[in-house]
Amino acid sequence: MPAAAASSPLDPELIAAQFDGLDGRVLIEKALAEPRLGRIALVSSFGTEAAVLLALLAEVAPATPVIFLDTLRHFGETLRYRDKLVAHLGLTDVRSVKPDSAEIARRDPDLLLFQRDPDACCGLRKVEPLARALTGFGGWITGRKRFQAATRAVLPAVEWAPDEGRFKINPLASWAPDRVAAEFDARGLPHHPLEADGFPSIGCMPCTERVAPGADPRSGRWSGQAKTECGIHRPADPVSL
């Protein structure tokens, strides 16, 4: 008898497409239960919209690893909000990941790298620590939404990131601002304390400014620079969707 043909390798983009149309809790449940996606973590900035995604995860699987990138340049309010939200939701595996202290001493000794080269600063404090933290994970859950920026306008529910070699799950990709707000109200979720002070999108303290009412919520991030993403995400490619 002829030998059986070898199985075709799994097509990651085809797997990602099978989640199209799912969102919210349903998508989280399906993603965590799908062995082809591998082990999954959630990455959260504990910013102004983070509580909704974290609440959905807590309902489905509160022991799922949650990674917080502690850049050492966060507002104190963000760190206190993180601790409050973790306790409120009952999350049991929250990992605060910091940049390498030796690399900071070498590459940012005066702590002004954010002025000289903001991309390099994000690389040092976010991109590199996250890459280390995600070792061994086949996918990660993000809180990105299409309405947030032009670079996110075609964001799929699940995407394959070939540069990382893992999947990204975006449960809130299709959600509009009013749906996010409604979930906050319905669940009685605490808000980030800086939101009421004019900060609709919050990152590191040196690179985050208040936003005028009605302006793009992310316009306070890296204001005045040709920069809209920290580097841990790349724009979704509309051709591949």
Rank of each mutant, 00 (worst) to 15 (best):
P9K: 01
E13H: 08
D20W: 08
R25S: 10
I28F: 04
I28A: 01
K30H: 12
A31E: 06
R39I: 03
A41H: 10
E49A: 14
E49M: 13
A51M: 12
T64C: 14
D70C: 11
R73E: 12
H74F: 12
H74I: 08
G76L: 07
G76T: 06
L79G: 03
R82P: 03
A87V: 11
H88G: 07
L91M: 13
V97G: 02
R106K: 15
R106L: 14
D108H: 08
P109D: 01
P118N: 09
K126I: 07
V127M: 05
A133T: 04
W140Q: 02
R144G: 05
A149W: 10
A149D: 15
T151Y: 07
A153G: 07
V154C: 12
L155G: 03
W160Y: 06
K168A: 01
P171V: 04
P171H: 08
L172R: 10
A173T: 14
S174P: 06
L189S: 03
P190W: 06
D197Q: 15
C204E: 08
P206Y: 08
P206F: 06
R210V: 09
A212C: 07
D216H: 14
S219M: 09
G220M: 11
R221N: 04
A226D: 10
K227N: 01
T228L: 03
H233A: 11
R234K: 13
A236I: 00
V239D: 12
L241A: 12
